[in-house]
Design a protein around this nucleic acid. Structure first.
Lengths: 116, 116
DNA sequence: TTAGTATTTAACCATACGGTTAAGTAACAC
DNA sequence: GTGTTACTTAACCGTATGGTTAAATACTAA
């Protein structure tokens, strides 16, 4: 318990059912029963998985009548991606892509130029 | 058990001690005692963490006399980064960077031009 | 052979995880 | 009110996790 955010995020991602739930939610917001449909496990099991995802800040649940629609909140994934990204140079034997990446970062440092 | 590779990888990353071990190994190969030095936990505890990392394919241990040097193997992190990367568009409210990223991918599709 | 260094394995403990079924709660529909 | 739908919570179970200490292993050094 009292785990740091990054540990919570990675722990949440360490289960294939939870990853699949996030994939469903990346398409659109969904109710719990709707989310549970593709899986062979009980609704309470799904409810528990959603709780883990919520604790990690990866989803938020609203309320509309009896339905509790779930929404993806991907922000914590950014920190996870950043942490893993540090090792890019290690898995990419050639450093070409790191080079490119660094160049890209320097090319557009912070400012967000308009596009579409 | 018999968890898929991605689950093993994320589970291995879900502990701050193990992430710190990987960070140490990203600098250079290290022996177990050497790796354990910065931590307040027992050597067997470190040994267990290393076993988890090894099972996830994130390290390999050799042997030199009594010493068992550990080496970082970052390949599994690539798959993790790829999975998380799918959500880039979701955490980046503006889609600018996705645009850039897609453009970048189209600009240099596969070929790996020399550099340094 | 004996001793020392480096590391793992064994045995144990408490807590967390992923699942179950059964019971509880919340909002609508009649 | 009663019932129905959509969940969540409670209680339980087996296994995994993260830690401990103590014993075993593997190799080097004397």
């Amino acid at each position: 318990m009292t785990a740091d955010q990054l540990s919570l995020t990675f722990a949440a991602l360490a289960d294939p059912t939870r990853r699949a739930l996030l994939e469903l939610l990346s398409v659109r917001d969904m109710a719990v029963t709707e989310l549970a449909a593709p899986f062979d496990i009980s609704l309470p099991a799904i409810s528990k998985h959603l709780k883990v995802l919520a604790r990690a800040g990866l989803i938020e649940q609203g309320r509309e009548a009896q339905v509790r629609p779930c929404q993806l909140k991907a922000e914590p994934l950014k920190a996870a991606a950043d942490w893993v990204g540090i090792y890019r140079q290690h898995w990419d034997e050639s450093f070409d892509r790191l080079d490119d990446y660094l160049k890209e970062l320097q090319a557009k440092p912070a400012g967000r130029e308009r596009k579409h």
